[in-house]
Design a protein around this nucleic acid. Sequence first.
DNA 1: TCAGATTGTTCGCAATTGCAAGCAGAGCTG
DNA 2: CAGCTCTGCTTGCAATTGCGAACAATCTGA
Lengths: 135, 135
Amino acid sequence: MALRRGSLIGEYIRRQRQQAKMSLRQLAAQAGVSNSYLSQVERGLRKPSAAILNQIARGMHISSQALYVQAGLLQDRSPHSDALAAIRGDTTITGRQRQVLIDIYESFRKEKPARDSRHRLDSSDEPRSQTRLAR
Amino acid sequence: MALRRGSLIGEYIRRQRQQAKMSLRQLAAQAGVSNSYLSQVERGLRKPSAAILNQIARGMHISSQALYVQAGLLQDRSPHSDALAAIRGDTTITGRQRQVLIDIYESFRKEKPARDSRHRLDSSDEPRSQTRLAR
DNA sequence: TCAGATTGTTCGCAATTGCAAGCAGAGCTG
DNA sequence: CAGCTCTGCTTGCAATTGCGAACAATCTGA
């Protein structure tokens, strides 16, 4: 049997983890799953249950929804997670810092090919960020 | 015994099914799961995976979210205004832009009491400058 | 009354999930 | 070099999922 699973969920997790500069074990510990299992999940050898996805999401500080969507368990839904609102409501940083973030965020939004009218569905990052495995 | 699980998900499904005046087998067929399994799920003897929940939701014409919430796999709404989570989940900007925001955000939090001002917004090991983002 | 259809349920069993433990390398530090 | 720690990966193994196939009740209808 081929394991040619979509595995986009696994790749997504790995990408997010690396972007957050976490080791596999680190994330595993933080999420409360075993590192071995997480390894297999990331490589698409195993298909994690929703409960596990949930834990992973929490461990990575991303929304469960985002993961579910990636896993194909949930379509679409709430494309606007409203980062702005979250930033504005964040009290762990100063007002000045908040304003900086907001400014940057908004400049990003403008920079984007905002031509797109309808909400985008694919959500994923750049298509070409290929892992380049040191080793 | 001792299966006194929460099983609210099961009860919920059964209630919805009966309200729709469907038989267990009918729903099972429409959802593409076995009737035996559906029976066990409804009585809380088994904990269905998200994939199964998805199929059931489709078979009952209710939203997947509703079921996930009932199953405790998803919280009703965005629970917190976790800025990091929101940024990570934001699909209206590119992954690189996200990463920039995240880096800045984290540097802000590290900054703590403006004493140790180690502004290291960059210093990344990734060549993300001049990301002109085609498309 | 007896065959047939429908209801929900129980009973194995193959396949899968998820874990603990242990493996091979890379990267340091003395 | 040895020793330690980090990285991710592989290997059994118990527990669980999910299904097919039967089972007991109930409701027809001829």
